[in-house]
Design a binder for these strands. Structure first.
Lengths: 342, 342
DNA sequence: CATTCTGTTGACAACGTTGTCCAGGGCCTA
DNA sequence: TAGGCCCTGGACAACGTTGTCAACAGAATG
């Protein structure tokens, strides 16, 4: 087995190259390139011959080589927490649409809320020289991105702020939304209100908790021990937290759920109970309308679209100071948040 | 502006290359390559010097060049219908996990159920020389893939079969699941049962309809005009179809919904009605348990995992005949499918 | 001391494409 | 017919990496 043959095995299964096409069409290499890229300066007759050769050989341009030469990959990376989370589906889709409009492909990965995995993913994307990055951070220190950003990889952080690097951010108004939701419960007569949120490591979790405290303080209510529970969003954990808040001599009469996964579990637990408990959840959920769940809704698609548009504006050369956009949330009353205290 | 400077603008923002690292560390190019790839045969001292230079310059290997040289991209493409669809989130995530276990990245795109866009996406992925492809097809003719497959891009079709090409497929048992669901309704006393499904162009839609017809025939029921409606899954369209089936002198007493999006709309419409109508839906939905919706469930994550595992087995050299896996579905009774005829 | 062996290192070509630049032919004009 | 221009086409280098191979130093062996 000679060297050429050995090579071809590990390569792209012996795909024809422009050189092959050129040989078959009886033209020069560059002429093929011109045809493939629809560049001017090729007579119709030559072009036809080249096209025929392309067809016959099943040639397809090797974008890896192209990228190496041109320096742009026409792809962007999206690092999020979990593609399976219903919040990220629409976000991801919105990013994809914008990318498509700019002729770019989307490479994505899930960090599973693990800072190390986030970094690993981000750096892998940088090694591929994606033109830009959209990151929903899991960790809170992103200094590892500095050389990459300096080297020109446009970056936008989404949903949570970046730690120790100066980049564009697109966030939801977690504090304001949460404050509004809790105030809504207070307005309906509640004073003993529980808060169940995500892990305190996560920025949105603490922001939402801050909103809760602000609303309670606004109403002059002292938050009792045991009304606040932060931790994993595992159903087990949330279930225990809910049950604890509902037991004891002075159970809460209303709850605020810190994100969609928490809300789902809380709804399930409350459904098993007799005494009605008011509930407002952060993030909308499919079918929440039918279940009558009052929520603070953030428009995931709008978040994704905004982030992607910022990114491409950077890629198109905008070099103004880094921006921090905060998108408003909406309270959607559907019943669960308007229940009076039991 | 001289040529070098002009170039550097369009390139990766003047990122340092191995050559730069080599110069700074006072070693040869290949030695840097060895260090970067943890190849043996470098003394600790040399390695340290190289590492320092890498740190100092913020070097990161350019995977585009690497890919060009090695012929493997360590990435796979996933083409699905809509990332925002809750069915595809877990599927996509499962694919990603398998890819990650094999050290590959995932590039994905949505076809939006448009065959042309599907082809465009698939070919773009092939041009990037992804190692493998997982496709949820929108169209029904995939001969355009032939040269690609011949050239060695491993391909697995998911959820719907491929048209006119011989590739691995991982499907759900649409026919069987649908038949079981409709039989379930019949067992609960229904005879006038409506079917609302996706566009007939889509294979699963017709398979599910076939299951419906089979169950009806098994029970000796003649399907009346107006009990079957195939078309877009737009809420408007579905709503009209439901309302039509529920009006008239002999309205249906039960409905079978052909997929999750249809189910959601049907549930909404039925919720507005007084007379209860039984319902079984294909695909599970979050919170369906709380709403008491009986469904035929297919495990999206299992589908994705299976497909990805098949793909990587191919990439690892398996060259047995193409396989066609059909995963079973499960009926989950939750109330809506057990309602008696009104 | 000559020889072989082992292990480290670097020079060089190649991967497939695109940018630059030049050659040659046809056409127009003087 | 000579001179100039435009148009088409091709030769060649370069992108940043990795595989191959040879050179070299030092250790081990005769």
């Amino acid at each position: 087995m000679d060297r050429t043959a050995r090579h071809s095995e590990t390569r792209y299964g012996n795909r024809p190259t422009m050189k092959d096409v050129a040989a078959r069409a009886g033209v020069g290499l560059k002429t093929v390139s011109r045809v493939v890229n629809s560049e001017p300066g090729v007579t119709p007759d030559t072009e036809r011959r080249v096209q025929e050769a392309i067809e016959a050989l099943g040639f397809r341009r090797n974008d890896s080589a192209r990228v190496l030469r041109k320096g742009r990959t026409a792809s962007i990376g999206l690092v999020l927490e979990d593609l399976a989370d219903p919040f990220y589906g629409p976000l991801s889709r919105a990013v994809e649409e914008v990318a498509r409009a700019h002729g770019a492909l989307l490479i994505n990965g899930s960090s599973a809320e693990d800072p190390e995995r986030e970094q690993e993913l981000v750096l892998a994307l940088c090694a591929r020289r994606v033109d830009g990055l959209i990151v929903i951070p899991a960790g809170d220190d992103h200094r590892y991105l500095e050389p990459e950003i300096k080297a020109g990889i446009a970056t936008v952080f989404v949903d949570r702020p970046a730690g120790h690097v100066d980049v564009d951010m697109v966030l939801s108004d977690s504090f304001g939304g949460s404050r509004e939701g809790v105030a809504h419960l207070i307005a309906h007569g509640h004073r003993r209100i529980g808060f169940i949120g995500d892990q305190p490591r996560i920025h949105t979790a603490t922001e939402r908790l801050r909103g809760y405290h602000a609303a309670m303080a606004d109403a002059g209510i002292t938050v009792a021990d045991g009304w606040v529970s932060l931790g994993s969003t595992e159903p087990e954990r949330v279930r225990m937290a809910v049950e604890e808040m509902l037991s004891g001599p002075e159970p809460v009469t209303a709850m605020f759920a810190g994100n969609n996964r928490v809300t789902v579990t809380v709804v399930r637990v409350l459904a098993e109970r007799e005494r009605p408990v008011a509930l407002v959840g952060f993030d909308d959920i499919e079918l929440a309308d039918l279940l009558g769940i009052t929520v603070i809704s953030q428009d995931a698609a709008a978040v994704g679209r905004t982030a992607a548009e910022h990114l491409f504006r950077r890629l198109d050369g905008a070099d103004h100071a880094t921006a921090r956009v905060e998108l408003p949330t909406t309270l959607i009353p559907r019943g669960s948040g308007e229940l009076p205290p039991a």
